[in-house]
């Protein structure tokens, strides 16, 4: 049986991922379309939030992906540092742009959603603030990748930054909760919707979450393939020149 680590061989990964790509894109996009169309056109307004409840189909999945993308990068960094598998380091590099885009979507849709309640476009609500902080961590991670020339050194340093960064991201999440209590006004509208989502809204939400997850998977797959192809071109040129 082909063990999971077999996929770690970059060239083999290229061959196998090309088979998975069409499915990932196809199912992902269709789930997304179903989820959004269903949620946007065929669900009633919420008695409290009116039609803004429709933003849930964007905010919840993107928020979910923003956090899970960083977690995936953390696991990939650990695999790279311990097992030295190129695919996992390059997958982490490919996941970062998708993660930062998801964080941005979560931020903007969160702010727009809260706007009618708060009357302003931005409020330092703990959840929104922690997404803003996560956005900064993504920026640092991408900046470090861009700043280093040698690919292996870059992979090592960004992996260590991701691990150390994760610890501080969790600390920041806790500190932000602590800091907003400090302002003596409780979190006005806490945006974690999972608990009080009525059934009628729930099914389309599942579809759009599935859509976002598969879209993330497809984008990271494509991104990793590009990184491997660039590294392969670099290796060929290294070998080519010395002939």
């Amino acid at each position: 049986m082909m063990s999971l680590w077999e996929y770690a061989n970059p060239v083999k990964f290229l061959r196998l991922s090309s088979k998975v790509m069409p499915w990932a894109w196809g199912v992902g996009v269709s789930c997304l379309v179903i989820g959004l169309v269903w949620g946007f056109f065929f669900t009633p307004d919420d008695y409290r939030m009116g039609s803004t409840v429709k933003i849930i189909y964007l905010h919840v999945p993107s928020a979910l992906m923003a956090i899970n993308a960083w977690f995936m990068m953390l696991v990939a960094s650990l695999i790279w540092l311990i097992r030295r598998h190129h695919v996992s380091a390059l997958a982490a590099k490919a996941a970062a742009p998708v993660g930062i885009a998801m964080t941005l979507i979560a931020l903007i849709t969160g702010a727009i959603w809260g706007q009618p309640m708060w009357g302003t476009w931005w409020v330092w609500d703990p959840r929104l603030t922690s997404f803003l902080i996560l956005f900064l961590f993504y920026l640092g991670y991408l900046a470090l990748w861009a700043g280093i020339g040698n690919p292996d050194t870059a992979a090592d340093l960004t992996s260590i930054l991701c691990i150390v960064g994760s610890v501080f991201a969790v600390l920041s999440r806790y500190a932000v909760n602590f800091w907003s209590q400090g302002l003596h006004q409780g979190a006005s509208l806490s945006l974690d919707k999972e608990e009080n989502v009525a059934d009628v809204f729930y099914q389309p939400l599942l579809f759009s979450i599935a859509g976002f997850v598969l879209l993330f998977f497809a984008l990271v797959l494509l991104g990793t393939r590009s990184e491997i192809q660039l590294r392969r071109a670099r290796a060929l040129s290294l070998r080519g020149h010395t002939k």
């Binding site: 030295r84 292996d152 670099r234 290796a235 290294l238 070998r239 002939k243």
Partner: peptide, 12 residues
């Protein structure tokens, strides 16, 4: 002959 370090050879 232009031999590559192990880490680069993984991509050939």
């Amino acid at each position: 002959k232009s031999d590559l370090a192990a880490s680069e050879k993984a991509f050939l």
